[in-house]
């Protein structure tokens, strides 16, 4: 069955939902927040996006896309090039291998998984940055950032679930 141009455009647009939500969360993370001390522990929003989509819709978040989005994050945040790309890619590969376990259980299980994955990602990033620059940042900053990310995970995941339900569902079948 042949579909019209606009129908196809709609389908592609919907399939890009995971990538677009990633970029949206990246933008939110870049916004200046006029609260003293907060930027020091800005949460890793994009990590949540990669984690969520790697479990629930890995077909729309393939490894090459994770790599590309990670590079965009590195370039737009001015951090060491490849730092986010590498950690996000490793998170994606690790989670995608275990997704069957999470997908059959309620979200709480995925959140518990994120406690582990988030910690590994934070430590991995910290180690990589240290190895790249030769300076290790104070570990408590990374720990605060991790804790904040963990706390925000359910809210962000809920928003992503809404996006999945309303935007992705129609193209799933």
């Amino acid at each position: 069955m042949k579909h019209g141009f606009f129908h196809r455009l709609d389908v592609y647009g919907r399939r890009a939902t995971p990538a677009l939500t990633f970029l949206l969360l990246l933008l939110v993370g870049l916004l200046p927040v006029p609260i003293a001390g907060l930027p020091a522990i800005a949460p890793l929003f994009t990590l949540i996006a990669v984690y969520y989509w790697s479990i629930y819709r890995p077909e729309y978040m393939p490894p090459w896309l994770v790599l590309a989005l990670g590079l965009i994050e590195d370039l737009s945040s001015g951090s060491a090039l490849g730092l986010s790309a590498t950690t996000l890619l490793l998170v994606h590969l690790g989670v995608a291998a275990q997704r069957r376990f999470f997908i059959s259980r309620p979200f709480v299980a995925a959140w518990w998984g994120f406690i582990l994955v988030g910690a590994l990602a934070a430590i991995g990033r910290w180690l990589l940055l240290g190895a790249l620059t030769g300076n290790y940042v104070a570990l408590h900053l990374a720990a605060f950032q991790y804790a904040l990310t963990l706390a925000l995970c359910p809210c962000i995941a809920w928003l992503l679930a809404q996006a999945q339900r309303h935007l992705l569902k129609p193209v799933d079948e």
């Binding site: 916004l31 927040v33 930027p39 800005a42 945040s77 001015g78 951090s79 730092l83 910290w126 940042v137």
Partner: peptide, 15 residues
Amino acid sequence: RVIADQGGSFVRNLL
């Protein structure tokens, strides 16, 4: 004008 503020434990810069 400062348009973006990249904080975090990994980087400190402004756009």
